[in-house]
Amino acid sequence: MLNYIIRRCLMAIPLLIAISIVTFIVIKLPPGSYLETYIAEQQRLGGEVTQDRVEAIKQRYGLGQPTYVQYFKWISGFPRGDFGMSFKAQQPVAKIIKERIGFTILLSLATVLFTWSLAVPIGIYSAVRQYSVFDYVFTFIGFIGVAIPNFLLALFLMFIGVKFFGADLSGLFSMEYMGEPWSFGKFIDMLKHLWVPVVVVGTGGMAGLIRIMRGQMLDELRKAYVQTARAKGLSEYIVIVKHVARIAINPFVSTIGWMLPGLISGGTLAGIVLGLPTLGPKLLDALKTQDMYLAGTIMMLLSSLTIIGTLISDILLAIVDPRIRYE
């Protein structure tokens, strides 16, 4: 088991390096150098750029030197937490990401928790009571969830909030708590706002997960070991939960791999509509304005999370399913 984990970790290293190279190429793709972009941006804003400043930046990013030197200058900053500057915001990329990553993860984890805690039991129940009224109703609701675009649902919920409850549900905090230090009141206020994006983003993914869980359960319920478990005299609850669901949950565990990057980029549209302080809207913004260090770093973050996510789901799968462990 330990061997397996170490092997998987080692395999992740070359992948990460390859991804960083691709990301760097993407950063370099727009015409012109960062310096030109920066100077042009400064002049557009009416500022002057001194020769010293230009030299300093050239030195910092290795401009004018071969591309691989520039790459190493860029990548060597990573271990120190230096991801370069955002040209647009005039702030270190690290600072921008730090501001937003906490809320992003909080929001995403809440969404995942919400989706899973509903999708898994509903999927199980739908399978056990296949073609029952319950099964049909939830299939129907689930598909409506998929069919309605996130942003529309977000707009709709905000409209309901303003129209009937006189509450502004956008953002994560009310006006009076914005920029305030943490307090119990602020926490409660956040919870009041948090459920909107959680429901909006969660309903989109729920139907798919319910279908996966239901389909897996139906596959497993047909298998002979279920009959064996019943013939042992186990109660139906134990048969379903301990024997069948335990195996049916496998595909869920494997989805953790692409769930982690989804945590960061997921709900971008809903994030924009609801004005959430998360990374999704920021990435879109950075790409639009060619803020390449910011965009590159976020992309790098997403790719790394994909790899880490896959690693985690592989390890979890090995824990859940002994057949994988011993291969």
């Binding site: 298998k223 002979a224 070991y225 009959q227 064996t228 478990a229 013939a231 042992k232 005299g233 024997h243 335990r246 195996i247 859940v320 399913d321 002994p322 057949r323």
Partner: peptide, 17 residues
């Protein structure tokens, strides 16, 4: 307990996990 059963397919009649 009182009555038990052995099934045809030993490959699939035991829970794999």
């Amino acid at each position: 307990n009182e009555m038990a059963m052995i099934f045809q397919e030993p490959m699939t009649s035991l829970n794999p996990v």
